[in-house]
Each structure stands twice: as structure tokens, then as C-alpha cells.
Design a protein around this nucleic acid. Sequence first.
DNA 1: CTTAACCTTGACGTACGCGTTAACTTACCG
DNA 2: CGGTAAGTTAACGCGTACGTCAAGGTTAAG
Lengths: 163, 163
Amino acid sequence: MAIKRTPTLEPESQEQAYLQIGEVAERTGVTQRTLRFYEERGLLKPPSRLDGGFRLYSEDDVRRVEQIKRLQSLLGFTLAEIKEMVEANEVKMQIRATYRKDAAVSERRAKLLKAKQVTEGQLAVIKQKLGALQEMNGHLEEKLAQYDSWLEGLVEQEKAQTV
Amino acid sequence: MAIKRTPTLEPESQEQAYLQIGEVAERTGVTQRTLRFYEERGLLKPPSRLDGGFRLYSEDDVRRVEQIKRLQSLLGFTLAEIKEMVEANEVKMQIRATYRKDAAVSERRAKLLKAKQVTEGQLAVIKQKLGALQEMNGHLEEKLAQYDSWLEGLVEQEKAQTV
DNA sequence: CTTAACCTTGACGTACGCGTTAACTTACCG
DNA sequence: CGGTAAGTTAACGCGTACGTCAAGGTTAAG
């Protein structure tokens, strides 16, 4: 009986620890199906593959998956919206990589401007949600205070009854 | 040709302006289908009806629908979660109404405790989301600053090129 | 009484975000 | 070399949150 297959490859050179889909699924808490689905939808770039076809993910990919989960479950963004966001992030990376390359300056400026606009849009959405959440927070805390005072009142009544 | 039917009923006594489903849909921005769907799922209490069967909504119902929309689109809650919330709210109203009634004190306390627990759960969720949002807000503002500084850098390069 | 605007209850359709087999290949251990 | 754990694609299924007819009843105006 095979004990367990080695999840990390590259025995001696530890430049990058590549992970297979099962490991990524376990570490991120999503299923393998979800990872393949995200790839289909363009949320994850097609990962490198082992000769046999097995997917090999990087730590960056893991971080990306975690970000996707946060955006989705905590903030309620759709996968389409999240895709736009990660694409904007890609642009940023691209720019950072080719920043010193002597390409057309106007083109790089255009890309930067677009990335900036996308970010501004995201920021606007975030700020809106923040406002709504803070308002709700206030309301709920008021409610809690109400409940507590009512509960105290009931305790008083109970005392009066038993006496 | 009929011009338009009167949307509000009760010609002289203006105690409450009841609205038909079309009016509510228009004012809240949701479809009639959605309103009936919310009723089916228990998010809206079955409204009163006209003799013919037409639904008659109150202003309170309108406010509820708007709250549902906020919770859903801004915060990403599911209808099931929202249902719990509005039910907790119902309990609150109920308690407020029967507060002075000499019913079983222990029963009222149990209800209050349950409502309080639900509210605490909601608060926890809200605070988690608030934290995540604030973090994202910070990151995005950093990004924007980055973009701006990069753009300035590009302007410098452009000057150097043209000179 | 007619008619247009408005409403009713089904009932089927749809987009999203995956879950769940099925049928097969690949990788490692002994 | 064989067995088994892990991976692959393909395809159908499912719950949520409605959209979209279809077929008809109700209401108010003329």
C-alpha cells in the first residue's frame, strides 16, 4: 500500500514548491472542481503542467485563490467582478515588470490610466459598502443595547413576582 | 381609453396609503415577480388583499424591500440569511408590542435572549466584513498612490524624450 | 357594458457557482 | 510489474434568485 505521494516536486532545488491540485484544494478550503472551474472562467491563469498533464500550482496561485474567496464570501462580489479585479492586478504586475523597458511611453501611460480607473471604480464600490456596513453596525449595536436594557427590566419583574 | 387607475385607495380617510404591487415594484426598483418571490420565501409577510385578490402593501413593506435589497446587493447576503434577519426584527417588534402584557415572563426572556443571540451573530459577521473591507480599502488607496507616482514618472520620461 | 390597465396563479426557462458521477490516465510504492 | 492514490476531461445535476410567458380574473373609466 502506497503511503502518500510526494506533494512537492524538485527534490533538491527548492526554488519553488509546486503544488498539485489536491494540496491547493486542502490549503485553500475549496474543492478541486472549484479550482478547475476558476481556471475555466479565467480567474486563475492556466497553471503549468506535469508531463502527464497534472496541474502544478504556485504559492502565488494559492494566494490568488484565497483572495477570490475573500472577495466572494465576505464581500459578495460575483466571479465576473472578481475576474475584472484580478485582471487589473495582472495589468499592475505587467507594468511593474516592463516598467524600465523602453517601450512606447504613451502606451504604458494608457495602460496605467486604465488600471487607475479600474482601481478607482473598485474603491468607490468598497467605500459604498463600508458606509452601508458601518450604518448597519451602528443599528445593530443600538439593538443590542435595547435588548440588554429590556432583559434587565424583565429581571426586575421576576423579582417582583417571586416576592 | 382609460387614462390611469388610481394607485392609492381610501379616497378620503388617509390613514394608510396602500400600494398595489406595481407601485411597490416601481418605487423599490424590483420586479413584481421578485415581490411575489420574496413573499413565497417568507421575506415579506403576506400582504393584505383587495376583494379581488390584489395585493395591498404598506409603506413598511416598501421599507422592508429596500432593506432586503441593501443586504443582498451591497453586502452579499443570501435570501436565507436575510430571512433570519427580518425574522429577528419581527421578534423585536413583537416584543415591543407585548412588552406590557402580563404574559409569562420567562417566555419573553427566552425570546429576547434568542433575538439577542441572532443580533450578536449578525454583528460578528458585520464586523468581520468591516475589517476585510477596511483592509481592502487601504490596499486600494496604496495602489492608487502607486499609479499616480508612476504616472508622474512617465510624464518626466516624456519630457526627456521630446527635449 | 366595454375596454384598457392592472392584477392573479401556475409553470417552465435561465444564469451563476459549483457538486457529482463516469470513464480513464498518471504517479509512486513495494 | 502490479496495485492504489491522485489526477484528467466530459457531461449532467442542483440550489438560488429570479425572468418570462400563458391564460385568465379584477378594477376603474368612458
